[in-house]
Amino acid sequence: METPSQRRATRSGAQASSTPLSPTRITRLQEKEDLQELNDRLAVYIDRVRSLETENAGLRLRITESEEVVSREVSGIKAAYEAELGDARKTLDSVAKERARLQLELSKVREEFKELKARNTKKEGDLIAAQARLKDLEALLNSKEAALSTALSEKRTLEGELHDLRGQVAKLEAALGEAKKQLQDEMLRRVDAENRLQTMKEELDFQKNIYSEELRETKRRHETRLVEIDNGKQREFESRLADALQELRAQHEDQVEQYKKELEKTYSAKLDNARQSAERNSNLVGAAHEELQQSRIRIDSLSAQLSQLQKQLAAKEAKLRDLEDSLARERDTSRRLLAEKEREMAEMRARMQQQLDEYQELLDIKLALDMEIHAYRKLLEGEEERLRLSPSPTSQRSRGRASSHSSQTQGGGSVTKKRKLESTESRSSFSQHARTSGRVAVEEVDEEGKFVRLRNKSNEDQSMGNWQIKRQNGDDPLLTYRFPPKFTLKAGQVVTIWAAGAGATHSPPTDL
């Protein structure tokens, strides 16, 4: 069977082979063929449309019947899901209200924590001031004790010197008594010597008188005998007598002179000795008097100093007792304040721990409710997609609110971060928990396990030699990294520990 286009092609070929045509004729024939082709295509399209309309009418009838069946089946399910969705919305509203209440309680707890922290800071300042005052008082007490020990040692030294001076005074008084006794003995010996000298002088005078009498008696006897002796021998006898008398007189005078000289010499020697002894004793007595006077003056001065030191010692002891009493009071006050502060800190920690436990429990309940609501929403969306139902505006708002919801909680030295990733086909969620104590904190952990970043959050360098970082993902083997023995993380510095297959460059001390 030939198509209209094939017939047109045969006809035009025959005409062209029979007679030659002009260009205008050819153009018109071409346009006519195009119109015929378009008409044929339109006829085919109309036939196809008619057949499709016939099929569409049958399909519409089948769809109508199916919609009636589906509407009867879905009406009950939709009512049940609407009821469950209403319950879920009520639960979500109650959870939102509970969350708002918990946020209010958390803000209240934070305000109480700030207030307690301020009070604690003030108490710590008072405690530091009390400890500083206690240290000052202890230093003052130590200085006073040192001064007291010095004063006591000086007192003992002065008492020793006073005892020595008293012994010296006793010795000097004994020496003075001995000197006085020697002086009295010398004076007695001097008086005795003077008496003996006077006696010797009297004896000498008496001997002179006796010698004169004997001489006169001898002259008288000789004169008497001379009268009786011969005149011839008188001159010879007289001359001999005169010579004998002269010789006797000379001898007697020599003896008297020698005895006189010896007596005067002895007397002068004894007198000089007595005078020297008297002068020496008088000098000793003067020196003893002077030394005794000086000793008395020094004793008086030392007694005055001793009394002054005793007064100072009594004042120091009184002040020391006052300082000890004040120190005891300060210690009791400090202990009482410290006990009160520790009790308040313990109560505050217990209260904060209780509130944190309650908040953690409520947060766990909220997370469980969020997971249940998310599961209900997934089931509802799956059924709506299976039944090709359009979601209600309320469910769209709930989905938008659930997809944009995120929370971040800080308290008790722990930080909890939650992130949620969404897509049109599926939804997944993960959470990161970080707890830090000390100078070094974990700043970031790569989700794909490529690196771990640490930061020194203090103002001092931290030695991290032979420290270890351990990481384990589920049931995978435990991964451990040990820092070099001499590694030190500077204040405020960040160090990144890269995985072996991350392709990073080893560049200490920032990249390991």
Rank of each mutant, 00 (worst) to 15 (best):
218 T>A: 10
209 N>L: 11
197 L>M: 11
180 K>R: 15
242 A>L: 01
244 A>C: 05
186 E>W: 12
183 L>N: 13
234 Q>M: 03
252 H>C: 10
273 N>I: 04
210 I>W: 01
191 V>S: 04
190 R>E: 03
190 R>F: 10
182 Q>D: 14
192 D>M: 11
218 T>D: 10
212 S>Y: 09
258 Q>E: 15
248 L>N: 02
186 E>A: 02
224 T>A: 12
227 V>H: 00
185 D>P: 00
255 Q>P: 01
218 T>I: 14
240 R>G: 04
229 I>R: 06
240 R>A: 13
187 M>D: 06
226 L>I: 12
217 E>F: 09
252 H>D: 01
189 R>I: 15
182 Q>A: 04
261 K>L: 14
235 R>M: 15
199 T>Q: 00
223 E>V: 00
207 Q>R: 01
203 E>D: 01
218 T>H: 04
235 R>E: 04
263 L>I: 13
254 D>Y: 08
231 N>I: 10
215 L>S: 04
238 E>C: 00
219 K>T: 14
188 L>M: 03
230 D>C: 03
251 Q>P: 05
208 K>T: 01
208 K>L: 11
185 D>C: 15
252 H>E: 07
239 S>D: 05
224 T>W: 09
258 Q>F: 09
232 G>A: 05
207 Q>E: 02
245 L>E: 05
237 F>G: 06
246 Q>N: 15
182 Q>E: 11
191 V>R: 07
195 N>G: 01
186 E>T: 06
180 K>W: 00
257 E>H: 13
186 E>F: 06
223 E>W: 01
235 R>F: 11
239 S>K: 05
268 S>L: 05
187 M>A: 04
250 A>D: 14
179 A>L: 13
255 Q>T: 06
217 E>L: 09
234 Q>S: 10
178 E>I: 15
205 D>E: 02
195 N>R: 04
204 L>R: 11
187 M>Q: 01
241 L>H: 03
200 M>G: 00
190 R>P: 02
255 Q>G: 14
252 H>K: 04
236 E>I: 09
220 R>I: 14
228 E>R: 11
271 L>R: 03
241 L>F: 10
179 A>W: 14
220 R>K: 13
239 S>E: 00
265 K>M: 12
212 S>R: 12
220 R>Q: 04
272 D>I: 15
232 G>L: 04
258 Q>H: 10
205 D>N: 05
258 Q>V: 14
214 E>M: 05
202 E>K: 02
198 Q>V: 13
230 D>G: 15
231 N>S: 12
264 E>T: 15
232 G>K: 02
242 A>G: 13
217 E>M: 08
204 L>P: 02
225 R>A: 03
255 Q>N: 01
206 F>V: 02
257 E>K: 01
211 Y>M: 13
207 Q>K: 12
195 N>K: 03
243 D>C: 10
241 L>G: 10
253 E>C: 06
193 A>E: 06
267 Y>K: 04
188 L>D: 02
251 Q>W: 02
236 E>H: 04
258 Q>P: 03
206 F>S: 03
206 F>K: 02
245 L>C: 03
264 E>I: 10
179 A>T: 14
233 K>L: 05
259 Y>V: 09
220 R>H: 15
186 E>I: 14
183 L>Q: 00
178 E>G: 14
255 Q>F: 08
221 R>I: 12
200 M>K: 05
233 K>D: 14
237 F>H: 06
197 L>W: 03
187 M>N: 03
261 K>C: 15
269 A>T: 14
254 D>G: 15
183 L>H: 04
183 L>G: 08
232 G>T: 06
263 L>D: 01
218 T>W: 09
233 K>F: 05
194 E>R: 15
187 M>S: 11
237 F>L: 15
270 K>V: 07
264 E>M: 00
255 Q>K: 07
252 H>Q: 10
241 L>Y: 09
243 D>N: 06
234 Q>L: 11
225 R>S: 13
225 R>E: 08
269 A>S: 09
194 E>S: 11
193 A>R: 10
230 D>N: 00
241 L>C: 04
209 N>K: 06
245 L>N: 02
206 F>P: 01
178 E>D: 15
273 N>P: 04
222 H>E: 15
272 D>W: 00
271 L>G: 03
257 E>Y: 10
267 Y>V: 06
268 S>W: 15
246 Q>P: 07
240 R>Y: 08
183 L>R: 14
255 Q>R: 01
243 D>G: 13
189 R>A: 06
220 R>C: 15
217 E>D: 13
197 L>F: 05
228 E>C: 06
206 F>A: 01
187 M>R: 07
182 Q>N: 08
255 Q>Y: 13
261 K>T: 11
256 V>F: 11
232 G>P: 08
